[in-house]
């Protein structure tokens, strides 16, 4: 008799915390490995860089707190401005990969025998390592054994020493960097072109659009997602251009092809680099520059997702 009363007064049998929050917890559990690694290998080092940039530290002994001195010196360092200026050149010229990739993609977007082979040949430079691309171009430019000078000679142009001349070296490296980057953009556009609606093209044709007008008003708007990704990937790629510079010139001649990422490596981790704090300060500046693009990227994503 008493038993039912008791059961009524007690709360329903306690369901486990897990059971009641399963729906909320499950995604976090799946995300956990990613979050942990992202935090340990990306987020934490960012703050660590901020921290180290306030110290003078050779990477071996005691670190000494020096406040903003590393930044003061950085803003007084001609090599920093050379690197920054080179980064700007990279940023602007690297964007040429986007129209370049687009036109190759448009050219290859047709049904002929063996088109798959041509496509993969065009994509090839992106598959091989940046280091190999750098080496190949360094040999190509080499004034004594390279192919470039004999080719220029055919057109009566004088011999050039692209990588040994402070005025041309950065352009030479960017040209080498563009080769794989164009291939990357091409692939992005080729996939984008698959998604172009044939009915719209048909309709535009009936309305008399062709050539550039067709491209500009009908095709390109449909390729916007591809363009967006291409811009982001290219900008980030330009800002972190390191391997090419390292392989082709080691920042030379006399530091004229340095970019921020390479200069950071040079002062802190290279053969003669023992200035961890200074390197960290450069890393922070580079991070702040990248942050502009990352913020833009996130804002676009957020806006698009809300729009859906």
């Amino acid at each position: 008799m008493a038993a039912p009363i008791i059961t009524e007064s007690t709360p329903p049998p306690a369901r486990g915390y897990w059971r009641s929050n399963q729906m909320k917890l499950a995604p976090w559990l799946f995300l956990a490995p990613g979050i942990v690694f992202f935090a340990v290998y990306v987020i934490f080092p960012i703050f660590q860089s901020f921290h180290i940039s306030l110290y003078r530290w050779d990477g071996l002994g005691e670190a000494r707190y020096i406040g903003m001195q590393n930044y003061e010196r950085l803003f007084d360092d001609p090599a920093f401005y050379t690197s920054l200026w080179n980064n700007v050149r990279w940023l602007l010229l690297y964007l040429l990969a986007i129209p370049g990739g687009l036109f190759i993609a448009l050219f290859l977007n047709q049904q002929v025998r063996g088109i798959r082979l041509y496509k993969s040949l065009f994509f090839f430079p992106f598959v091989i390592s940046q280091v190999v691309v750098g080496l190949v171009f360094a040999w190509f430019y080499n004034p004594s054994i390279g192919l470039l000078n004999p080719i220029l000679g055919l057109f009566g142009a004088g011999p050039v020493n692209i990588l040994g001349n402070p005025n041309t070296v950065t352009y030479g490296i960017i040209a080498a960097g563009l080769w794989p980057q164009v291939a990357y953009c091409m692939i992005l556009y080729l996939t984008g072109l698959n998604a172009v609606d044939p009915e719209q093209v048909e309709a535009a044709r009936l309305d008399g659009a062709k050539g550039w007008r067709m491209l500009w008003y009908v095709i390109l708007p449909q390729l916007r997602p591809a363009t967006f990704i291409a811009v982001v990937v290219t900008v980030i790629g330009a800002l972190r251009s390191f391997d090419m510079v390292s392989v082709m010139t080691s920042g030379g001649p006399f530091g004229s092809s340095r970019v921020l990422a390479y200069y950071m490596f040079e002062v802190s981790l290279s053969e003669y680099g023992f200035r961890m704090g200074y390197g960290a300060a450069i890393a922070v500046i580079l991070f702040l520059i990248m942050l502009v693009y990352i913020a833009f990227f996130l804002w676009r994503m957020w806006r698009e997702e809300r729009g859906v």
């Binding site: 040994g164 030379g252 001649p253 006399f254 040079e266 290279s270 053969e271 003669y272 680099g273 200035r275």
Partner: peptide, 22 residues
């Protein structure tokens, strides 16, 4: 030069020498 001079001085110095030669 790069063993007698301080690492940082060595790297700045040799870069300067190269620039001077050009």
């Amino acid at each position: 030069f790069d063993r007698d001079a301080d690492a940082e001085m060595a790297s700045a110095g040799m870069e300067g020498f190269q620039e001077f030669m050009v």
